[in-house]
């Protein structure tokens, strides 16, 4: 168990890298909190995960690599922005399909209305 104080002191990233780490942390779920990202939470686990992200960023990982590192350890659940994958196809395509269906419906309604006129 790492002390939180140490974690705070350990963070010594360049401002640009820190911003990148913070942006990643925004989209990572704090697993022991309810609906908080690790960027927002003061829970011990969130601090550990923030430190992990900072460590990976310092080691030169890309954003995707950091996320993969986290999902390998904590599971897909940590991603507040779910992965764009075959399994999640319906989740990502659903709203677009709904929009198309709505457009078709509106078009048919307007055409029917135009005929009646």
């Amino acid at each position: 168990m790492i002390l939180p104080a140490l974690l705070f002191l350990a963070a010594s990233l360049a401002p640009q890298e820190q911003a990148r780490a913070d942006a990643i942390a925004e989209d990572i779920r704090c697993l022991v909190c309810q609906n908080q990202s690790v960027a927002e939470s003061e829970a011990e686990l969130a601090k550990v995960m923030r430190a992990l992200i900072e460590e990976r960023v310092a080691a030169g990982d890309s954003d995707d690599e950091v996320r993969r590192y986290l999902t390998d350890r904590y599971g897909q659940e940590v991603l507040l922005r779910p992965a764009v994958s075959a399994g999640n196809a319906l989740l990502w395509a659903g709203p677009i399909i709904a929009l198309c269906a709505a457009a078709l419906w509106a078009f048919s309604l307007f055409r029917r209305g135009a005929k009646a006129r």
Partner: peptide
Amino acid sequence: VMEVSSGTRISVGPPY
């Protein structure tokens, strides 16, 4: 749906 169908736990959060 995901948890029931495939057993994986995922989150859908503010970014989505």
